[in-house]
Amino acid sequence: MTDATAAAPLDRALLRRTRGRQNRGYRRFLLPAIVTIVVLTIVPLIFTLGLSLTSLSYSSIRGPRFIGLENYADLFGDARFIASLWQSAVLIFVPLIFQLVFGFMLALVMNERLPGLGWLRVIFIIPMFFPPIVMGLLWKVLFTPQLGGINHYLGLIGISGPAWLSDPTMALISISVAAVWGWTPFVTIMFYTAMQTFPSDLYEASRIDGATWVQRIRFVTLPLLRQTALVVIVFRIMEGLAIFPIIYVMTSGGPAGSTETTNYYAYITGFEFLKVGYASSIILTFLAILVAILAPSTRLVLKNVGERG
């Protein structure tokens, strides 16, 4: 596709054959990257699997031994683990819904090229470069009584502000607000980039057919965005728990474990209780669940990967 400038079909066939022969010379440039990635990710992944079959714990005086699937069996009876799965689902999907809605609206605003809104294109992206830990601090400040002032201003309009971070339900909402703030720009860029590629003749045709603006969005833009939305959803689900630093500073999984996601539980188990074997089984089970949910759609999403560029 990138050789569209080549003159004649014959030349392109010749070029391809020559290049095929040259492939051999280029493979070794790829080798360091493949070795690095295999050594740094695949090997540790297998190692984690091994760890999850042991009783390894740095807080125990007994040495690690092989215990088979015992850790995994224990998970089923671990109420804290089950709760963490539910809380993970909440903290992945609740922000995701708002990210999709607001991300779409923002992309729409930018795509309409409304006069006087150039500044929005510049500032909407700011949260993307925020270190997640600072994002967490920022919202912790805002939700802290007195320091943040949110409840003061809510009071001015007659709303008695809730205890944002110390009430279990409100804590989930507070973290979701931070997650929407932080990752909506990603969704916006994805949608906006896709909108730029939509064929204008479709819009032209719908206009000639007398479609209203709303109908155009409903019947042209939204269907065209379906593929992109799927990509966004897969990425946001897979990376949804990258909010770890936010939880870490805002609530530390509290109050009473109400914002403890599964990766946070694995963190506590592995690095505070030092039960590394059990923590491995927690995080691998979570990874397995993610993959099971996403596997069917991933095929669809990734089928055009690598065709580009």
């Binding site: 990257a33 990635i37 740094l40 990710t41 695949i42 540790p44 992944l45 190692f47 984690t48 760890l51 390894l56 990425f235 897979m238 990376e239 728990l241 990258a242 770890f244 990766n263 694995a266 963190y267 592995g270 690095f271 590394v276 923590a279 491995s280 995080i283 691998l284 979570f286 990874l287 993610l290 990734l302 990967v305 690598g306």
Partner: peptide
């Protein structure tokens, strides 16, 4: 495709073996 999938794996998965 492979390096994309690897990038998507949550960091916590890698953290435990590196710790050990």
């Amino acid at each position: 495709l492979g390096i994309l999938l690897i990038r998507m794996v949550p960091g916590m998965v890698y953290l435990l073996p590196y710790f050990v």
